[in-house]
Amino acid sequence: MTALVAFALASALHAGFQATVTVLVYPVLGDRGPDEWRLAHARHSRAITPLVVVVYGAIVVSGAVLVLSGPGLLGWLALAAVAGALGMTAAAAAPTHGRLTDRDDALVTRLLAADRWRCAFAVAGAVLALAALAAEG
């Protein structure tokens, strides 16, 4: 398996995961009221953490291998898009999650907005990785 194939598979997994979170998981979490928030947020965090470790681990490792292999332009663009998703996670989504011990409408709105951006970046990364594969083959 080439580095680009591994990255394309990981980026497709990442995009699917992120789209599921954006379309299904966060809207349900965001609809929780103040009386349900702590328990729902804690359950969400515990349940999703192992999946985040696997998905993000795959995208980071395969991305590093792709960088070392010297990708073409589309590969670099795919890496940049995925880096955008990871950057949104590190700069906005994760810190906001950390601050959401109690329901705070402004923080929930910020989390949902950051999540939409990282979903867009993740999907763009997958599309670009698949385009890189098509151009290579």
Score class of each variant (00 low, 15 high):
91 A>G: 12
40 A>L: 09
63 G>A: 09
94 A>F: 14
94 A>Y: 14
14 H>E: 11
57 G>R: 07
62 S>G: 00
41 H>A: 06
73 L>E: 07
12 A>F: 05
36 E>D: 07
35 D>A: 14
61 V>N: 10
65 V>H: 03
31 D>V: 03
84 G>C: 13
30 G>R: 10
91 A>H: 08
56 Y>R: 11
23 V>C: 15
44 H>M: 07
53 V>K: 00
80 A>S: 14
87 G>F: 11
7 F>P: 02
57 G>W: 04
17 F>S: 02
66 L>T: 06
16 G>Y: 09
87 G>C: 11
7 F>L: 04
39 L>Q: 11
74 L>M: 01
23 V>E: 15
27 P>Q: 14
20 T>Y: 15
51 L>V: 06
70 G>M: 12
92 A>D: 11
65 V>D: 07
19 A>V: 13
37 W>I: 08
9 L>M: 05
45 S>K: 10
63 G>W: 04
6 A>S: 12
40 A>C: 10
17 F>R: 01
70 G>I: 14
12 A>K: 01
98 G>I: 07
82 V>S: 06
76 W>N: 05
12 A>S: 14
19 A>W: 15
59 I>V: 08
45 S>G: 06
5 V>E: 09
93 A>M: 14
13 L>W: 06
20 T>Q: 15
13 L>A: 10
62 S>N: 01
91 A>T: 10
36 E>F: 00
75 G>H: 06
37 W>V: 09
77 L>D: 02
20 T>F: 15
91 A>L: 15
63 G>L: 04
93 A>D: 14
30 G>T: 13
85 A>I: 05
63 G>K: 06
74 L>I: 01
21 V>N: 05
26 Y>F: 09
38 R>K: 13
73 L>V: 14
65 V>F: 03
19 A>M: 13
76 W>F: 11
25 V>G: 12
27 P>L: 12
8 A>D: 04
82 V>H: 10
52 V>N: 00
53 V>R: 03
72 G>W: 06
75 G>N: 08
71 P>R: 13
5 V>F: 04
52 V>W: 04
6 A>Y: 06
6 A>E: 11
67 V>H: 06
34 P>S: 14
27 P>M: 14
5 V>I: 12
71 P>Y: 12
99 R>I: 12
23 V>Q: 15
53 V>S: 01
47 A>D: 02
34 P>Q: 13
38 R>Y: 01
40 A>Y: 10
24 L>H: 11
57 G>C: 02
8 A>F: 10
14 H>A: 11
40 A>H: 05
31 D>L: 12
87 G>S: 05
24 L>C: 13
30 G>F: 15
28 V>P: 05
10 A>D: 00
46 R>Q: 02
27 P>A: 11
